[in-house]
């Protein structure tokens, strides 16, 4: 196991090489009166691929969005490579971090969304190079080179000059993956990356993800693609009603479920996919 750092003595600016890529402890999140996450503990090891499954409304997206700090969580902590995300380190009442600190901590995270969220007024290459130029302050030439590299990784160097509106869903999602990869993240978060795609376009996106996993990328993937979970994940996490109900190796979780809820969930899924 990896040692977890105690916040007080470690320098807050240094990424701790021994720290886990992601460590979630006692995470709770409410929307108004609705408790959406009720105490989540999750540790992700380097190069591990974790697939999160569960019924609709169980809090999978919310968990991922809290890990990215797109949602402000109420209790517990999210640590990225040892550094607390979203709140200032220290005792007493918690204070939110500023934009700059948040960006620093999540700089190693890349995120891919169900609906791609490309910027329609920029070309594929423009989408990929925007942050390289603005955040990494690369020159146009440097950024274009790095951007084309990223597009090549997802097999889209030929589409660099096209606008999102001219691309298929699968191509859009691959551009979105390239946009995240261009910043050389060490952890990738995926929220149902293939759910908005026509069935015949799912494969091209999954194969890019499979390649990423094979290259050793640490990944957390919320998905309904049980095949992907079975074959690519190192661990499958089953969520229900804001809790992690069961987790383990895909073979165990998917073929020998222990909890009633997971059994039901898998049965429903099997019925639907017949």
């Amino acid at each position: 196991m990896y040692e977890t750092r105690s916040g007080a003595n470690a320098g807050p600016k240094l990424a701790d090489a021994t720290a886990l890529p992601i460590e979630v402890r006692g995470l709770a999140k409410r929307f108004g009166d609705v408790e959406v996450l009720r105490g989540i503990d999750l540790q992700v090891q380097p190069s591990e691929v974790v697939c999160v499954i569960g019924p609709s409304g169980s809090g999978k997206s919310t968990l991922l969005r809290c890990i990215a700090f797109l949602e402000i969580y109420d209790e517990g902590e999210v640590r990225i490579e040892g550094r607390l995300l979203g709140y200032r380190e220290g005792d007493g009442p918690r204070r939110l971090s500023g934009e700059r600190e948040i960006n620093e901590v999540r700089a190693c995270l890349g995120m891919v969304f169900q609906h791609f969220n490309l910027w329609p007024h920029m070309t594929a290459l423009g989408n990929v190079t925007e942050a390289l130029r603005v955040v990494k302050r690369m020159s146009r030439a440097q950024a274009d080179e790095a951007g084309l590299d990223a597009l090549r990784k997802v097999g889209l160097q030929g589409q660099a000059r096209q606008y999102p509106g001219q691309l298929s869903g699968g191509q859009k999602q691959r551009v979105a993956i390239a946009r995240a990869l261009a910043l050389q993240p060490r952890v990738m978060l995926f929220d149902e990356p293939t759910s908005a795609l026509d069935p015949e376009l799912v494969g091209e996106v999954l194969s890019v993800m499979r390649q990423l996993a094979a290259d050793g990328m640490t990944m957390v993937v919320v998905t309904h693609e049980m095949g992907f979970a079975a074959h690519v994940a190192n661990r499958v996490v089953f969520m229900d009603e804001g809790r992690i109900v069961e987790q383990g190796a895909p073979a165990d979780v998917l073929t020998a479920p222990r909890s009633v809820r997971l059994k039901q969930f898998l049965n429903t899924w099997r019925e639907r996919s017949i």
């Binding site: 999540r106 910027w119 925007e130």
Partner: peptide, 23 residues
């Protein structure tokens, strides 16, 4: 402008003023 586009921008590290100006 869909909030997803702004979230994507935040995730690649764009700061608020860049998001306003460029997105």
């Amino acid at each position: 402008i869909p909030t997803g586009q702004i979230e994507a921008a935040r995730m690649v590290g764009l700061r608020r003023r860049h998001i306003v100006r460029r997105i």
